[in-house]
Simulated scan of single mutants.
Amino acid sequence: MGVRAGVVVCVTSFLLGALFTHWIADSLTLWKSPITDEHLWTAASYYSILAKGPSEILYFLSAVVILGGTTILWSLNDGEAGNLMFDGGSIFLFGTAIAMYLHSVLPSAGLFAKFSSLPAHQLKDPFPRALRHATLELASNNLICSVALTGVLALQAGRFWAESADDGEDDYVVVESEEQKEAQSRAKTPEAQEEQLVQS
């Protein structure tokens, strides 16, 4: 695996890990049935902690995203058939995940607008209807981004497998051609020519 593919895999894995940390909250709203007010308050409290976090975290994540996107585009620029297929799909899924996060998770209708300040509450209190939709939608968006980034890893693994298979075929052709050259050089020796004359 080349350096560029390694960078893409590392960046994607890091972003997936960051999204998987949201499982603490997302599992309560996506995979629990029925969804109770206690589940919703717990998830909203987690998102509130994220919304109030230091802005340096966002800057760091932005730098990681830019590194990953630039590396995929750089590989795509090579113009090779494998790069066009695997890196083309990778940049589409990577871009989809980033666009989803920028459009649905972070903006005014998302994390910072809805969860920066929660009303005083107890876990058993009724959950506000307006906040319920935002909480469920945020969990769904996190899941979509995770699936898209998993697709990037799958495509990069497919690219690695395809390149390994091509290298194996090239090695086989090289070995076969060297054996043919050796056989031809042996046939040209005086001893081999005498044997051919005796047999004829």
Rank of each mutant, 00 (worst) to 15 (best):
2 G>T: 06
4 R>C: 10
4 R>A: 11
7 V>R: 09
13 S>L: 14
18 A>Q: 08
20 F>V: 11
21 T>K: 07
26 D>L: 11
26 D>I: 09
29 T>K: 06
35 I>V: 15
37 D>T: 10
38 E>F: 00
41 W>L: 01
42 T>S: 09
42 T>I: 12
42 T>W: 14
46 Y>W: 04
47 Y>T: 03
50 L>V: 08
51 A>F: 11
54 P>C: 02
55 S>A: 14
55 S>L: 13
57 I>H: 05
59 Y>H: 07
60 F>E: 09
63 A>N: 09
66 I>P: 07
74 W>S: 15
75 S>F: 06
79 G>H: 01
79 G>P: 01
83 N>F: 04
83 N>Y: 07
87 D>S: 02
89 G>A: 02
94 F>C: 00
100 M>Q: 07
101 Y>K: 05
102 L>H: 00
103 H>W: 03
104 S>L: 10
105 V>T: 10
107 P>K: 12
108 S>C: 00
109 A>K: 04
113 A>T: 10
115 F>L: 01
115 F>S: 00
118 L>K: 08
126 P>S: 02
133 H>Y: 05
134 A>E: 03
138 L>I: 08
139 A>R: 06
140 S>A: 10
140 S>L: 11
140 S>W: 04
141 N>D: 08
142 N>C: 05
144 I>N: 03
147 V>D: 01
148 A>Y: 02
150 T>A: 15
153 L>E: 02
154 A>T: 06
154 A>M: 08
154 A>C: 12
154 A>V: 11
158 G>L: 04
161 W>V: 08
162 A>K: 09
162 A>E: 10
167 D>A: 13
168 G>V: 09
170 D>T: 06
170 D>A: 08
172 Y>R: 12
172 Y>C: 06
175 V>P: 01
180 Q>L: 13
182 E>C: 01
183 A>V: 02
189 T>C: 10
190 P>G: 05
197 L>R: 15
